[in-house]
Design a protein around this nucleic acid. Structure first.
Lengths: 213, 213
DNA sequence: TGTACATCAGTGAACGCGCGTTCACTGATGTAC
DNA sequence: TGTACATCAGTGAACGCGCGTTCACTGATGTAC
């Protein structure tokens, strides 16, 4: 009757191992990913995980897959019900950074390809859905006159690298403590707005720059 | 007389160990950093490195310091002799990405802070010179009417996160193989140009967006 | 409803590995005189 | 110029650790009849 009564069979050890591994990665970085540590945190023996994952690489792959799916879903949800193309773009960017900050372990694993790891090279195209959403949104902005015409790819690349860069710097880099006193949510709002303003400005017809004096 | 004659004393083992470590990180990612591996590649015994580094953390710190200094120097050189503020900004961005792609091991180490590693948290502010250069450049563009007035920080943040994001994606992420057939140098040129165009456009006086139909 | 049995999901011990680090040591170098 | 000696920069062996993985095993579960 006790709620967390320890049974011989765990119930959902696979899920528990994934959560344990994420906790380890959140605390210690990608290098802290290990089957033994996950088993330890889940309260099972060293060998137990092998009934759920072929090995440590399979665990990493499962977490990456989950991360990519979660990011895509977060971006989908964030734009739901928003019509204005500029507002949609801002929502997309904020959802991207928001996901990374809320799920740093997933995010680290998604983009932590050691060059040796061939499995990751294969998984990499999975990152493209996020880019694809941004590309589509750029096209929508172009159609609405909110982004300059021509190739959408450079603009989408700018958007993607911006949010990815901010996410990385917030999770692992010097922005962990904030920049000049700004919090993460203020930073991604400022960045997304600057992006959208920039695109909109580029879409307007050319005028000579305003000079003073 | 043979050029690479093996002597008992190495000559510059400290430098050799750093180069060996960088090669290991370039091949195997940050996780491949180890004193034993560096010693092995340099052709010395396990214990030899301890005459040059207090431990593996000291080696990592030395490489990070070298990386931050190299990045700063690359950005300084890239803008030397360029007067046009927009061109300077493009040069700054390209130098940043160019350094990262040319020195992926350094770059990885510079931004690979495992949360546990207190030493890195201290080193993090060292990243700020790059941001500082961009901030100063934004101000120069504002003075020249090539960027919108107001706070320079959001624009500099956009520039920094963009180039950092592109660098990360090129080194470890899905852009390793290029995006849509574009090479790294084409990508950073496109990104830097888009950034500068965007800033310039934002600096122009507002006009209603051009609509067709 | 009861029972034999197959299957599943754990255990615990063991293996070999690479790592960081320490130790007593020794060969090479350079300096005082 | 030669020699005694201090110091420096290596060696090789050893330690304990955590890791991935395998193995024979056993307790728990569920199903056929």
């Amino acid at each position: 009757m006790a709620k967390a009564q320890r049974r011989y069979h765990h119930g959902d050890l696979r899920r528990a191992l994934m959560d344990s591994a994420l906790a380890a990665v959140a605390e210690g970085g990608v290098g802290a990913l290990s089957l033994r540590e996950a088993a330890r945190r889940a309260g099972v023996s060293n060998a137990a995980p092998y009934h759920h994952f072929e090995g440590v690489h399979a665990l990493a792959a499962a977490l990456r897959d989950e991360g990519f799916a979660g990011l895509d879903e977060a971006m989908r949800q964030a734009t739901e019900g928003i019509d204005d193309p500029g507002a949609r773009m801002v929502a997309l960017g904020r959802a991207y950074v928001g996901f990374a900050v809320a799920h740093p372990a997933h995010y680290r694993l998604m983009f932590s390809g050691s060059p040796k790891d061939a499995a990751l090279a294969q998984a990499s195209p999975d990152a493209l859905p996020a880019f694809g959403r941004m590309l589509a949104q750029i096209r929508a902005m172009q159609a609405a006159g909110l982004a300059p015409g021509g190739g959408a790819a450079p603009l989408a690349l700018l958007a993607w690298t911006s949010v990815h860069g901010l996410a990385s710097l917030l999770i692992d880099g010097p922005l962990r403590a904030g920049l000049m006193g700004l919090e993460a949510s203020a930073l991604d709002a400022a960045l997304s707005k600057t992006l959208v303003d920039g695109f909109a400005a580029m879409a307007r017809p050319r005028r000579p720059p305003a000079r003073e004096g």
